[in-house]
């Protein structure tokens, strides 16, 4: 009886610890102007997408650009895309910063912050990893040098697991 009781306890602990494979929520769809035309989120389907909400007045946002440029370069032969969504109300301020960088990914403009609101961003910068099925996988608020490696590993993992 004692053995049965202990076995039941162990079984209960095992059942409780089974990981829950939750479905990831679909990422909000968007259509925003870019320098070359319009960017529709539907165009990005099938790719792992790193979406970054930024503004020219936010220093950590600007600090994240060299890393994003390096990531785009590193994964250029894979189904990976970076989209930087600018939230400046005055586009000329963003243009000044964009001109100072060798940006190798699309920049979309959302001066009304309509898409930022849909994504429910909590701080600047806010970034999201959207998987190849268009689902939101990971959300990052802020940009720190110490978390760059972990982010890169996550991107690599999501590209490989697909």
């Amino acid at each position: 009886m004692k053995l049965l009781k202990s076995s039941l306890y162990i079984l209960l602990i095992l059942v409780i610890n089974i990981p829950v494979y939750a479905d990831y929520p679909p990422a909000p769809k968007f259509q925003l102007p870019t320098e070359d035309g319009v960017l529709n989120s539907a165009q990005l389907k099938g790719k792992l997408v790193y979406i970054d909400f930024w503004a020219s007045w936010c220093r950590p946002c600007k600090n994240s650009f060299p890393w994003m440029i390096a990531m785009k370069e590193k994964f250029k032969n894979q189904d990976f895309e970076i989209v930087a969504i600018n939230l400046d109300k005055d586009k000329t301020l963003a243009d000044e910063f964009i001109a100072s960088q060798n940006i190798n990914f699309p920049i979309a403009f959302d001066p009304q912050a309509a898409v930022a609101e849909q994504y429910n961003i909590e701080g600047m910068p806010s970034s999201y990893l959207i998987d190849q099925h268009g689902n939101l996988r990971i959300r990052y608020t802020g940009f720190w040098n110490k978390s760059k490696n972990e982010k890169e590993l996550t991107i690599n993992k999501l590209l490989k697991n697909h």
């Binding site: 007045w57 939230l87 400046d88 930022a116 961003i121 701080g123 600047m124």
Partner: peptide, 11 residues
């Protein structure tokens, strides 16, 4: 104050 509205505060 929404994060995107903090441009004036960041000056």
């Amino acid at each position: 104050v929404q994060p995107w509205d903090k441009d004036l505060l960041a000056k």
